[in-house]
Design a protein around this nucleic acid. Sequence first.
DNA 1: GAGTGGTCTAGACCACGGT
DNA 2: CCGTGGTCTAGACCACTCA
Lengths: 244, 244
Amino acid sequence: MNFVRRHDERLPLYQRLRDELSERIASQQWRPGEAILTEAELVKQFSASIGTVRKAIDMLVAEGALERFQGRGTIVRRARFDSSLFRFFRFQKESGERQVPEGRILRREVMAAPSAVASALRLAPGSEVIHMTRLRLLNGKPLLAESIWLPKEKFAALLDIDTGAFGDLLYPLYEERCGQVIASAEEDLTAEAVDEVHARLLQLQPGAPVIVVERVALGYDRQPLEWRRSRGPAEQFRYQVEIR
Amino acid sequence: MNFVRRHDERLPLYQRLRDELSERIASQQWRPGEAILTEAELVKQFSASIGTVRKAIDMLVAEGALERFQGRGTIVRRARFDSSLFRFFRFQKESGERQVPEGRILRREVMAAPSAVASALRLAPGSEVIHMTRLRLLNGKPLLAESIWLPKEKFAALLDIDTGAFGDLLYPLYEERCGQVIASAEEDLTAEAVDEVHARLLQLQPGAPVIVVERVALGYDRQPLEWRRSRGPAEQFRYQVEIR
DNA sequence: GAGTGGTCTAGACCACGGT
DNA sequence: CCGTGGTCTAGACCACTCA
């Protein structure tokens, strides 16, 4: 079927091309790290000129879906933000190098999704979810307390692994064990005075300020795959933005 | 003098063109809201092809310096983030519409720049600065306590105006009275337990969590023009980001 | 209707990466 | 060396804005 007809023909060609490529990426036609078609090939297949093809690719690069390498090709980008903590919390060593905090699973259970979770994950109310609580530490000092919810349907394979063997990063685990690739995320920051439970977990005075980060992690097709809420001491928190 | 020679000739043409336009904007050859040269004119003046000119303009649009309007021209963008508070604090009415909080200047003084301020504003140590404290309120309720520092050299005209006549937005005032146009800003967020002084100003319990926003505001030439530190109740704070 | 930016073409040559 | 993306040209026609 002609790709043009699958998209709104009133759209500019470069838009339809972008959408087409975006769909192919979402359908995992190429896995992260793999090269997509060359520009010359796209020119042929879509009967577009090189400039138009490049504009479509440019858009996907700007969106973070692709990455170009002169001489090598254009590659499906692998999101690497399990360490996005670093956007918000300063865990650097004095040397400035990044460390991956230790991840320790405290609890894992299967339950019916609370309504807020069902809505964030776009599940039917009452669907089964995997709920985990996890503590992240650096040099034995607790830095972040996390509550993580996953749709059981997609992540059941995690239940077969001992939680002690989860390792420090979850997204590679999701990919290897469950074939679920995280492509992007939306985060929502708020702040509050810490409650008793988290004060104990994070070794803080009750009432000390904490930052709360709520994250929906999405696949390449933008379907929500994970929802988590993380709390960390406000003292460690720092975020920088540029505004225009 | 040939514009090409003023830039590194090893750079691609579209880069040199971008730099040239960027410099002209910084030098206020066009004021915010005014149209720059048309694409056709740029093609002539720089002996480049339309595609190259468009690429240079595209970059400046992406950077937020320009804005295109089909049929009208390409305009120097006016930064409109005095209300960037809305990025961080939710002040919306139930209706969702934005209100400009009332701004009330509590104090204004001329002093030697504290070293942190001198460094943020890139002033020689001990330079004279204008320091103001300001409270922002909505429906009479205090929302934000601000400390603002300005280089006296550029902003001396402000000292002639009664602080009661400052109005609710400062950046338009800077532009009208001092000819200083704010083009962008860098913000730095942290959180802390509120101290006594700010607890009283913001009508909070001592120790309640507050968000601290430090902002350096820059001109089109990226020279720092203002430094401010704002504190607001964490309860009102919310920030959303997308991560890829 | 005149003038602006928006889309698109069909090439050319260059710079870089891997073999 | 070959194949990749990077830069650049010199047009054409369309869609929109404003007088």
